[in-house]
Simulated assay, not measured.
Amino acid sequence: MTASWLPSLITATPEEGFDLAIKLSRMAVKKTQPDDEVRARLRPVYAEDPTALVAISHVVAANFQTVAAANGYWRPATA
């Protein structure tokens, strides 16, 4: 049995959580378009498009909200 690429949403730090949000976003693209050649051909199209890059940032932000919620990043700090 192969290991899952996403064993948990729990991370040690918010920075690791953000990295996980990026991975979630990248995996969504890979699963939506599984053909490596097609993804490689399309990358230059969006890599130079500011609107596409902002859209990508929104997807990562949405995924980070999910990771942050799973990790309780927004709980009040204790004194």
Rank of each mutant, 00 (worst) to 15 (best):
T2I: 12
A3H: 06
S4N: 05
S4D: 14
W5A: 13
P7F: 04
S8A: 08
S8G: 02
S8M: 04
I10S: 10
I10C: 00
T11H: 01
T11D: 04
A12I: 06
T13G: 03
P14E: 04
P14F: 02
E15Q: 11
E15F: 03
E15Y: 05
E16V: 01
E16R: 06
G17R: 05
G17N: 03
D19Q: 08
D19L: 08
L20A: 08
A21F: 03
I22Y: 07
I22C: 09
I22L: 11
I22Q: 13
K23Y: 04
K23T: 07
K23E: 11
S25E: 09
S25W: 04
A28V: 00
A28I: 06
V29N: 09
V29T: 09
V29G: 07
K31W: 11
T32H: 14
Q33R: 12
Q33L: 13
Q33G: 00
D35W: 03
D35G: 04
D35C: 00
D35Q: 02
E37N: 11
E37T: 12
R39L: 14
R39P: 09
A40Q: 10
R41F: 11
L42K: 13
L42C: 06
L42G: 00
R43L: 15
R43I: 06
V45W: 01
V45Q: 05
V45M: 09
Y46G: 04
A47R: 09
A47D: 15
A47G: 13
E48W: 00
E48K: 14
P50A: 11
T51P: 00
T51K: 15
L53M: 13
V54E: 15
A55I: 01
A55W: 05
A55E: 11
I56D: 10
I56T: 08
I56F: 06
I56L: 13
S57G: 15
S57A: 14
S57D: 15
H58R: 15
V59S: 12
V60P: 00
A61W: 10
A61T: 14
A61I: 10
A61R: 15
A61Y: 08
A62H: 11
A62P: 01
A62F: 08
N63W: 04
N63Y: 06
Q65M: 12
Q65W: 11
A68E: 08
A68G: 10
A69E: 13
A70P: 04
N71R: 01
N71C: 12
G72H: 03
G72V: 03
Y73L: 10
W74N: 14
R75G: 05
P76E: 09
P76H: 05
A77E: 12
A77V: 09
T78M: 06
T78Y: 02
A79L: 10
A79Q: 04
